[in-house]
Amino acid sequence: MMERVSEPALQTLPQRDNSLLIVFAIMVVVLVAAPFVTYPLFLMQALCFALFACAFNLLIGYVGLLSFGHALYFGWASYVTAYAAKAWGFPPELAILAGTLTAAVLGVVAGALAIRRQGIYFAMITLALAQMMYFVAVRAPFTGGEDGIQGVPRGHLFGVINLDNPTAMYFVVLVIFLAGFLFIHRVIHSPFGEVLKAIRENEPRAISLGYKTDRYKLIAFILSASLAGLAGATKAIVLQIASLTDVYWPMSGDVVLMSLVGGLGTIFGPVVGAFAILSMQYKLAFLGEWVLVIEGVIFVTCVLLFRRGIVGEIANLLRIKL
């Protein structure tokens, strides 16, 4: 049943080895040049969401697990990073590390619970656990309730690089994003990643071949949660705020939408999707509540007509793997 999640991956496309490399090179060039033509703050935010979507896509696209609660890791990492930087005076690298580790720990607990059920139940459990931790965030004193944690200092990276300089901040975010992106690429193309894909295609068969699939699923879950946490932690330093929005269920919905629009199970899809959805939210912000309606319409359209997503469709057209 699971294999239908990722139609593009199923097709035996003639693989051109260098296509991934070319597209990656184009992406890097565009992202290095981008801050000189566009608003850097928007780009930094988009890169954080792109990493968040890539982390989410690692689960849905390559293990076939739909987590509907990824705001939990993004939001809590964001809170811990913001608190560590502001209240404890952590330097940015340690604050981000603290946030990422928090997400990893939450991923261990939530993952261990959620993988006890499959398919649709997995999605409901992850959503419910995220909602629980949302209520905890509402009540916990350190999160600042409705106000969130504001005015988080960006500080000096490794004590040298002043992150209050937008260009420096941008390139730090870009390095974090690229590191996360390449890490995910490495995971997917490792022997471990092959087992994950085998689980996605046919879990009973993977079990019968002797793989302890629960262990693989849990490790993939923890990796995904940690990377989502890295994205949330970086976002807290970039935007200098952590708030309830980051940990609430619409955030989980947004990351699903970004990956779906870009293309589930494609490595570049979530990046394209994140930039597309975030641009839309910025450009159409004046429409108020209609943005929600438009997002809903995009969801429906993607599921009915456009299941490969933008990158998936392009890859299919050019008959390459992206």
Binding site: M1, M2, R4, V5, I60, L66, F68, G119, I120, A123, G253, V256, L260, G288, E289, W290, V291, L292, V293, E295, G296, V297, I298, F299, V300, C302, V303, L304, R307
Partner: peptide
């Protein structure tokens, strides 16, 4: 959607929920 993976049903109805909620809020 009946021939597709269950997850697509969840995604589509989530989209419908956003539409209904957005219109009501407006």
């Amino acid at each position: 959607l009946y021939k597709l993976d269950h997850l697509y049903g969840l995604l589509l109805t989530f989209g419908l929920a956003l539409i209904i909620e957005g219109v009501s809020r407006h």
